[in-house]
Design a protein around this nucleic acid. Structure first.
Lengths: 212, 212
DNA sequence: CCAGGTTTTCGCCTACTGGTCGAAAACGTC
DNA sequence: GACGTTTTCGACCAGTAGGCGAAAACCTGG
């Protein structure tokens, strides 16, 4: 979501939403306040600090240090934005003001990485979703084709998919109706990473073996 | 590494090294400059932004926003520090000034997480190291026992371990001398994450099959 | 110099995980 | 009712992690 600057510097160029930090708020409160002027903040499914951008010449003087955030909105919400603001496809972004292009770059990298070691992918989808939708989001964020079969198995083996029982109507060209799922958070947040080097004794599920 | 504050507020309490950002430097340059007053900066094997701490009341007025960093030093360097500064064990830290305890907490969490999905573990060890040493670092950072056997296999399967040919002398109580390894960075940085959902066609190593 | 303790290293086995393929199911349209 | 489409499921294979236990290589004490 970009906003067309009205004033100099970089007037009429697209830039990320944001603004100054007030003395009585922390940075997350601040960015949520700034965003509230653009969209309904309750739509945000995830917000996290991205990085501090602080090159002395990143903006014309006076010097400004920016704390950039990564915010996600589920794909089902149709966020209405004010006149001077517009949603863009990340693959076809216009030229942007200041160092905002590199901020977007970092955000895309962060999201793609986190899809691998967290469950952040669910923050991209509505509360109820089909596997195909989820796969499309993964594909878009990662930049390569993802198999729905594999995605479903990997996620359901982690006990993250809970079928709602309902189905979604097929598209205009027919096809089997897709089953609906929701994110099954068994005390897990979408941001929790799963370890690769696990604690000892955690590879052994209860039971097993065989006393035939 | 903590530093004992000389002046109010929080005089005589331990705090993380740091200081004000100058107008002509970015935050990373700044923290490296601040650290240079304490230790030889060339010893740092890794530096990354941790997070911005910005609660309005985190320090007594006037308000200060801090960009915290995570810095790693290989375990073989014995960093000499000035009089007012000391290295502490992270498990037995003294009471700290401001919100610095929560900063340390976050740093420990970040390091433990990153050990799983990056090769940051190598930044904890000297250029040449034994598997046991590496395992000890992993165990300390993760907080649970790690098997040297498994660690070696996992890392060498990723082609990250390169034997130097040398061996390290055994400890005072004997034992087989340990082989020395170095980090084999084949165009890989210690910070590069490895994806769990891989691009299609990457599970197939060249060749394979069988035409006997 | 040999017996016993210690630490590292290697091989084997098992369970789990991810990737791929193809068949079957469930829909729409012609 | 035949055909195209999309989803779903099962099967197969290779790669990966965890867990022994044996062997190797060293030390010390008798």
């Amino acid at each position: 979501m970009l906003w067309e600057r009205a004033r100099e510097p970089h007037a009429h160029r697209w830039s990320l939403p944001g603004g100054g930090l007030r003395v009585d708020e922390d940075v997350e409160t601040s960015i949520r306040r700034q965003l509230a002027e653009k969209v309904d903040v309750r739509q945000l499914s995830h917000v996290e600090q991205l990085a501090v951008f602080s090159a002395p010449d990143r903006v014309p003087p006076p010097r400004v240090v920016a704390t950039a955030f990564l915010g996600l909105v589920p794909s089902d919400v149709d966020p209405e934005v004010p006149e001077d603001t517009r949603w863009h496809c990340v693959d076809t972004l216009p030229s942007m003001a200041f160092d905002h292009a590199s901020i977007v770059d970092r955000a895309r990298h962060r999201l793609a990485s986190k899809l691998s070691y967290t469950n952040l992918g669910f923050a991209l989808a509505p509360p109820e979703f089909t596997i195909s939708l989820l796969r499309d989001h993964y594909s878009a964020a990662l930049g390569y084709r993802v198999s729905a079969t594999n995605l479903q198995r990997v996620l359901s083996r982690r006990l993250l998919l809970e079928p709602t029982g309902g189905t979604a109507p097929p598209g205009p060209s027919g096809g089997r109706p897709a089953a609906l799922f929701r994110f099954s958070a068994k005390g897990i947040k979408v941001t929790d990473p799963f370890a690769v080097l696990r604690p000892p004794g955690s590879g052994r599920p209860a039971g097993g073996g065989g006393t035939p």
